[in-house]
Design a protein around this nucleic acid. Sequence first.
DNA 1: CGGTTGGATAAGTCTATGCTTATGTATTGA
DNA 2: TCAATACATAAGCATAGACTTATCCAACCG
Lengths: 104, 104
Amino acid sequence: MAENDIFRALADPTRRAIFEKLAAGSMNASALRKGMEISQPAMSQHLSILRDAKLVRQERQGRFVNYEVDPEGLTLIVHWLAKYHTFWPSRIADLKVLLKEIDQ
Amino acid sequence: MAENDIFRALADPTRRAIFEKLAAGSMNASALRKGMEISQPAMSQHLSILRDAKLVRQERQGRFVNYEVDPEGLTLIVHWLAKYHTFWPSRIADLKVLLKEIDQ
DNA sequence: CGGTTGGATAAGTCTATGCTTATGTATTGA
DNA sequence: TCAATACATAAGCATAGACTTATCCAACCG
């Protein structure tokens, strides 16, 4: 189940850090490791889990594999969250207000 | 860390089911168990984890403990998600459109 | 070619986690 | 007051999951 894959993938802080890094700009696995104190196999395994959850996607470029954020995973979370929008504070019921909050 | 608690809490399908049930209407722990094939201690433990993640909150009512959705947890996810709004499909960048999708 | 580099995979280990049974603690109602 | 009910907590167990080391594969480069 896709929803399950997503929440499981995001349950690990290292994977959220990887995802956040990719959100700032796509890069390959080696570049991702820089400044992250994580072994090469561990990174590869995390990326595999993020990929299965459709949170990232890859594209082979010769010897390198470039990773980037996959919007599909995020869309699934947005939809999951939207099911409970009646509980959102009215302040952020307007997305424009929310995004303004974030940007500053 | 609150973010960590939330994603860990949601990583379990049983807890997401509990949360969804509470979103449809607050109730006590025994009522939650109905139709859920889950032991009383297991339910209590799940609720404890959801509470720590601020996804649900409780209110003792005599012998019963009423549980309900806590908007605070949802707000945290919304904010986490909003950090990546540049990756959302443009279709749902407008929340009104999104909510319309959900309602049907 | 043949070595080097980027990355995936396999197998084993250790810890986290979700369950169980047993028990504890309030609250209520007979 | 005392049994029953609602729930929490403790302790133990079994599986999942995050890491390790070792190895493999493929693409590049001298």
